[in-house]
Design a protein around this nucleic acid. Structure first.
Length: 535
DNA sequence: CAGTGAGCGAGCTTCCGCTTGACTT
């Protein structure tokens, strides 16, 4: 009998099926050891750290040890990334007390052959990767636990907190709010004509932005009795590629925008769908899709929509950090599912996005028509522009809503005369930038490399819990405290507030993984940088 | 005698990232 250990119990069940009776497959349920919560747990001089059992994990480890005692070989098959390697390290430390025959198994997809392969090639832990996790973890602890007390003192508010992720996130929200506050709304005006051809009405616009309504009125007055003729027709075809399949950030963002789900709700629904075996792993930053599954979906597309709707499986550039075993978020199969309520709603969003990602391009026809107005009141004729946008082939938008608005124009030929129904002025206002929604914040964080798929939802939650933000008309509005805290941190800890801090740090963590740097040096360098701003 | 200041000790509380059940409402 052999023991095979993974992180997730759902994965454990699947792998158990693949490996059969010779193996017992069990899960760690994530991290098993971590720094203690109530104290710093790190010696600031030596960077010696104290690791304790994560709440409830003593039991897990004990039962793994019990199974390990009577196992031939113990394989630690946690995720092939920085955090997974650290989990493997702590699990191995414990297992070694009862069984010396421990090996690290690494696999990048969950298929019978990949798992068998990982067992054949099982070897040693990658200690450099473990060290880079130590650096990441300890830096986050030092920053969080050393900076937060400054806020307690400064504001006599013991709920406040600061951190590598939450503080730049809060800055995004506060910066945006300031932009909105200082935004001056300006009105501007367009002169437009309503034209008619064979009973079809359409609009044409004079392409000049008037600051002053009386100037616009003046022009409108001059052309209102004019004669209109088509002087130019430009046609352009445009192809709109299908969207990428979902990853955590885009799922949260789209579910927020299209279904109105808060990020936390989306994550918990998706987690359940995953546990039921309905969708793939819901915490991922990879767009990868198994080619076997893609083929299965494409057959379904052909059958449901027709062959002309079938696109192709594309490869997308992955972020260097996304090295995990996980695919994109997609249904595990195309069996008809009857899922009730919000589970069904979210599932159908995921299904349709997955299908769309494998479908053909949308084909648009854009038309730009120049309409010349001549009038005795004008020195030279004036050209108005009418813009048309028509969907020639709907492609992927059959499955997933596209953000495209059609503008139909009648058939128009050069030289044709048009009836001028009326001339009018359209008043517009400059728009302040929008507040972040939960979804757009998550997408921005992802783009900046701040936070991880497993934490996006909790980042939003933390900001709310600390009293930094609240939901106002589905957007994140910062509180008075948030402004004060951001200003304080900008003044005293500017490095922490730099949006690229995480990226710089990530770079050095990579160097630890490559064996180029000693992890403690990296911790000292970055912690030093953060704290050096203190007055 | 009332108000002030120094000194001491208790108690407040925090990070990010990996995973779900075990709770309560």
């Amino acid at each position: 009998m052999n023991l095979f250990i993974v992180e997730s119990p759902t994965k454990a069940k699947t792998i158990q099926r693949y490996l059969g009776k010779e193996f017992i497959v069990r899960a760690t349920f994530g991290h098993v050891k971590d720094l203690p919560q109530r104290e710093l747990g790190v010696d600031e001089e030596t960077l010696e750290a104290k690791y304790v059992y994560v709440k409830g994990k003593k039991k897990v480890i004990d039962s793994l040890k019990k199974l390990a005692r009577s196992a031939q070989v113990v394989y630690v098959g946690t995720d092939p990334d920085r955090e997974g390697e650290a989990i493997a390290y702590f699990v191995e430390q414990e297992i070694l007390k009862v069984n010396k025959n421990v090996r690290r198994a690494v696999f990048y997809e969950i298929t019978p052959s990949a798992i068998r392969e990982s067992i054949r090639n099982a070897g040693e832990l990658n200690m450099n990767m473990v060290y880079s996790q130590f650096a990441r973890r300890i830096l986050d602890r030092l920053i969080g636990y050393k900076v937060s007390p400054h806020l307690w003192k400064a504001f006599r508010n013991y709920k406040l907190s600061a951190g590598r992720v939450q503080s730049p996130a809060l800055r995004l929200i506060v910066d945006r709010e300031r932009e909105i506050e200082s935004f001056k709304v300006k009105k501007y005006y367009y002169v437009k004509a309503l034209l008619e051809k064979d009973g079809h009405l359409f609009e044409a616009t004079y392409d000049y932005r008037y600051e002053n309504p009386s100037d616009a009125k003046l022009l409108a007055e001059r052309i209102k009795d004019g004669v209109c003729a088509v002087v130019g027709v430009k046609r352009k075809e445009e192809r709109v590629p299908p969207p990428k399949p979902f990853i955590t950030s885009t799922l949260q963002s789209d579910a927020n925008a299209k279904l109105g789900f808060p990020t936390e709700k989306t994550q918990s629904l998706a987690q359940k769908l995953y546990e039921w075996g309905v969708i793939t792993y819901p915490r991922t930053d990879s767009y990868r899709m198994s080619s076997t599954k893609a083929r299965e979906f494409m057959e379904y597309i052909a059958q449901k929509f027709g062959q002309e709707y079938v696109g192709r499986l594309r490869k997308f550039k992955e972020k260097p950090i996304s090295q995990g075993a996980h695919e994109c978020i997609r249904p595990t199969g195309i069996k008809e599912r009857t899922l009730s309520g919000d589970y069904g709603v979210l599932y159908r969003l995921i299904l349709s996005r997955t299908l769309a990602s494998l479908m053909s391009e949308m084909l648009l026809e854009k038309r730009e028509v120049d309409v010349e107005v001549s009038s005795p009141k004008l020195k030279t004729p004036l050209v108005l522009k009418a813009k048309g946008l028509e969907v020639k082939f709907d492609g992927w938008s059959r499955a997933y809503p596209a953000d495209i608005k059609e503008e139909k124009l009648p058939e128009l030929k050069e030289g044709e005369l048009l009836k001028l129904v009326k001339v009018f002025i359209e008043e517009k206002k400059t728009q302040p930038p929008p507040r972040y929604t939960e979804g757009s914040l998550v997408r921005t964080l992802e783009k900046l490399g701040i936070g991880r798929p497993s934490t996006y939802a909790t980042i939003v939650k933390t900001l709310k819990q600390r009293g930094y933000v609240h939901l106002y008309r589905k957007s994140l509005k910062p509180t008075e405290v948030a402004f004060l805290v951001v200003d304080y941190l900008m003044e005293h800890f500017p490095v922490l507030m730099d949006y690229s801090f995480t990226a710089y740090m990530e770079n050095s963590l990579d160097e630890i993984e490559e064996g180029k740097r000693f992890w403690k040096d990296v911790v000292r360098e970055f912690f030093g940088k953060v704290m050096s701003g203190v007055v």
